[in-house]
């Protein structure tokens, strides 16, 4: 059998719903982004659209494998396969859309964390410089800072405490998305990645950027004079202060605060599955079952 015949034979007559969707995903992901795939698709004939092509492929496969099967049984097989292929397509589509829709928010969150860290660095520098300046003018080591300076120092300390917590939450959001992709991919797509390469790249790059920011954050306590006046005096004299809890080791703070993404990942994956089921049912003409699924989910959310 020629290669061309083999290829068309497999593609047109033998694909299960899962295989057909995996093949479509492999082709679509070659475009790197959902956007470029969409642009290409817009120029193609109607038959290239996945919601036209996939059900067609599946119908042909079921018919070719069900020769001599009773009409009623065939109808059942056709309906089941159509429902499966639509469901799998929507799992992939919904997960990509959701991840892409949140991209702008992720960009802004990362920029905000960067900016807050810069402000922190500048704030600590100013505070340490002011303490030294004050010593130059007063030559009085027992002098305590005024109310305004004290409040500023307190605000800075609060921000130093808050930054890693917010970073950890953001890290958790991204890690949960990646974990949700893994759950869906392993359960429904034999390990085939769901995300378009550029979206997966964006998530990984954001995690790398966060690692870099955490590295910078962890370096803040290094070389800073101690908060207490006595410690400050010892620091000026070149004596070493005992290590504080916040400088107990690299990554200790962020590691401690970072949440386990499993639970959120599961909730995301379950929601994607529910929406994909509802959409598949609606496409099959079963609107009441579709609405029923969503209502059931809403009721469960309310009772939680």
């Amino acid at each position: 059998m020629s290669q061309a015949k083999r290829a068309s034979d497999v593609e047109e007559k033998n694909l299960s719903p899962k295989e057909a969707v995996i093949l479509w995903m492999k082709e679509a992901r070659q475009f790197d982004s959902l956007r470029s795939y969409g642009c290409w698709l817009a120029e193609q004939p109607l038959d290239a659209y996945p919601l036209v092509r996939l059900p067609k492929q599946i119908t042909a496969a079921v018919r070719s494998q069900s020769k001599g099967v009773q009409e009623e049984k065939l109808r059942h097989s056709l309906r089941r396969s159509q429902k499966d292929v639509l469901f799998l397509f929507y799992v992939c589509e919904h997960f990509n859309t959701r991840t892409i829709e949140e991209e702008e928010i992720r960009v802004l969150k990362l920029a905000l964390l960067q900016q807050r860290l810069l402000t922190l660095l500048y704030g600590t520098y100013c505070q340490d410089r002011d303490r030294l300046d004050e010593l130059d003018h007063l030559h009085d080591l027992s002098h305590s800072p005024n109310g305004k300076r004290k409040a500023e120092a307190q605000a800075l300390e609060t921000e130093i405490m808050n930054w890693p917590r917010d970073e950890a939450l953001f890290w958790g959001e991204i890690s949960a998305l990646l974990e949700a992709e893994r759950l869906l991919s392993e359960r429904y797509f034999s390990g085939e990645p769901l995300l378009f390469p550029d979206t997966a790249r964006e998530l990984r790059e954001t995690l790398t950027a966060l690692e870099r920011l955490v590295g910078t954050y962890e370096s803040i306590p290094e070389g800073r004079p101690p908060q207490s006046q006595e410690g400050f005096v010892r620091w000026l004299a070149g004596e070493k202060d005992p290590p504080s809890a916040s400088s107990s080791g690299p990554n200790s703070e962020s590691d401690r605060l970072r949440p386990n993404p499993q639970r959120t990942a599961r909730a995301i994956a379950e929601h994607i599955v529910l929406m994909a089921r509802a959409e598949a049912l609606a496409d099959m003409g079963d609107r009441s079952a579709s609405v029923g699924l969503i209502r059931g989910w809403l009721r469960a959310q309310d009772s939680n």
């Binding site: 290669q3 083999r6 290829a7 497999v10 593609e11 033998n14 694909l15 299960s16 295989e19 057909a20 995996i22 093949l23 492999k26 082709e27 034999s190």
Partner: peptide, 11 residues
């Protein structure tokens, strides 16, 4: 063909 065969992992 490679892509098709990768998609059709189990029948």
């Amino acid at each position: 063909l490679k892509m098709l065969e990768a998609a059709v992992r189990s029948q």
